[in-house]
Design a protein around this nucleic acid. Structure first.
Length: 467
RNA sequence: GCCCCCAUGGACUAGCGGUUAGGUCACCACCCUUUCAAGGUGGUAGCGCCAGUUCAACUCUGGCUGGGGGCACCA
């Protein structure tokens, strides 16, 4: 059975690139009727962030990526890692290193200055077992794995055969002086212990894979299949990062992107179907996703396309559901959201225009509050023109007499008036729109008037005429 | 500096020796229309370069160039 995992480190938020990795693992697992496990890689105490794990679970849940286990927490498994490190030490596949961080840094700087590859110089590797044991009782130390000076190759599911030479690779620290393992050791141990069959991760891990392969070899374990996903990129083609835009999934959620749209969009960054289909439900993704159809080259995260796709999903939502999802955003803008039915009607008139949920408050603001803001350009262009006030006065009188203030009635009366005065309909429609909403663009005029109601419409018309 | 990966329009991509190089976003034009959208139709724009293999290369091989990633007691 296929078993995969998503293994983020809790640094405060879920990175978009992390979401892509999680998604592909999830899809691969579901497609193959396997398991999708979650593991928290919190072995770096210096980067510990309070509440990050909870936030991570929350956002994963928002994305709809449900996992099949109680998450493995690495910081709670220190004894397991230590046991495995000791095994390596005993077998002489690893050695204690007593070099201080200061010495290592100095060494590295010299190597860089000399333009040499930076690599541990092997000082502590030469220590005898007796010396090492003795020093271990007096000093803190790290443990390094012994790299093998041999060719290491593996068959990456996405990239095919990849070769490295062990002699060029450093003796990686696998246990830090604080007793915590480094990524490399913890990762290999946990992957093996939880029966991971496929490691699907970002390309940034490609060059550390030989280290992992050697560890598997030392433990006498067979390694899982590796699939290294292409990176997600900034517009300048560098690895997707903060500074160049939003990078946290939470940011996109808070900006009003739908989970469905984000998932759909992300799925297409490095994977595609033969027919280049764009819109997929999650079920469809599960059905169609294979690693064979993943690409190898990095993909720029294109906000424009995400926005388009979000609009697609918003238009497909029922008014009921759209309203439900928009309410937090309306509320955040300080409006009363108690009248659900009324909000529904407002949103129904603007659905086609909504790109993100955060657009909603502004699109319906003239329904929500009475002191509307008049767009200056609109006033100049439409209202402050000769004859317009006269037209608005007439219209106000006509509207005042309408008993049934419905879309149909208002439109009939307005058109009748236009005909009687030989006016083009647009000569009336535009001024009325601006007078009532403050802007030149908005929903279908007569639907808007009906929803606003006779009283408000007359009040706003009179206000404009008065001024 | 060393190691590794990658390369189709501005962006995401299809293509797996013979195609008028297809789709999506964006952009432009037109249509629809009371505005803005949405929708419809059409359009601009692409195989990084050089060799080789082959009757035939976007497609296979090599080199070059370009871009990216990695080289921490971070993941």
């Amino acid at each position: 059975m296929v078993i995969v995992r998503f293994a983020p480190s809790p640094t405060g938020y879920l990175h978009i690139g992390g979401l892509r990795t999680a998604l592909y693992n999830y899809l691969f697992a579901r497609h193959n009727k396997g398991k999708f496990l979650l593991r928290i890689e919190d072995t770096d105490r210096t980067r510990y962030v309070e509440g990050a794990v909870e936030e991570l679970l929350k956002i994963l849940n928002w994305c709809g990526l449900e996992y099949d286990n109680t998450p493995t927490i690495q910081s709670q498994r220190l004894d397991i890692y230590k046991k495995h490190v000791n095994e390596l030490l005993e077998k002489d596949f690893a050695y204690r290193c007593f070099c201080t961080p200061e010495r290592l840094e100095e060494m590295r700087n010299i190597q860089i200055a000399k333009k040499q590859p930076s690599k541990y110089d092997g000082t502590c590797k030469k220590l005898s077992k007796q010396e090492s044991d003795k020093m271990a009782s007096e000093k803190t130390f790290t443990v390094r794995m012994k790299m093998l000076a041999e060719e290491i190759s593996f068959n990456d599911v996405i990239r095919g055969e990849v070769k490295f030479h062990g002699s060029l690779i450093d003796d990686q620290i696998i246990l830090k002086s604080d007793g915590y393992p480094t990524y490399h050791l913890a990762n290999v141990v946990d992957d093996h212990l939880t029966g991971i069959t496929h490691v699907i991760r970002g390309e940034e891990w490609l060059s550390s894979t030989p280290k992992h392969i050697i560890l598997y070899k030392y433990f006498n374990w067979t390694h899982p299949a590796f699939a290294h996903l292409p990176l997600l990129l900034n517009p300048d083609k560098s690895k997707l990062s903060k500074r160049q835009g939003d990078v946290a999934v939470e940011d996109y959620r808070d900006k009003g992107f739908l989970q469905e749209a984000l998932i759909n969009y992300i799925s297409l960054l490095g994977w595609s179907t033969e027919d280049s289909q764009q819109i997929f439900s999650k079920e469809e993704l599960v059905e169609k996703f294979t690693l064979e159809r993943c690409g190898k080259s990095g993909a720029i995260f294109d906000l424009q396309k995400l926005i388009w796709m979000n609009g697609e999903y918003i238009r497909k939502l029922s008014i009921e559901e759209l309203t439900r999802r928009a309410i937090p955003f309306i509320q955040k803008s300080g409006f009363d959201v108690s009248d659900f039915e009324f909000l529904k009607k407002c949103i129904a008139l603007e659905q086609d225009k909504i790109k993100t949920l955060s657009d909603v408050p502004n699109l319906i603001v003239f329904f929500l509050k009475d002191d509307i803001i008049y767009d200056e350009k609109a006033m100049l262009k439409v209202i402050k023109k000769e004859g317009v006030i006269e037209i608005l006065k007439n219209i106000t009188d006509i509207y005042a007499k309408i008993q049934n203030f419905t879309t149909q009635e208002i439109e009939n009366e307005t058109r009748k008036y236009a005909e009687s005065k030989s006016l083009k309909t647009s000569q009336i429609f535009h001024p009325v729109r601006v007078a009532v909403s403050g802007r030149t663009e908005g929903p279908s005029l007569f639907h808007m008037l009906e929803l606003l109601g006779k009283e408000k419409v007359l009040f706003r018309l009179n206000k404009i005429i008065g001024e």
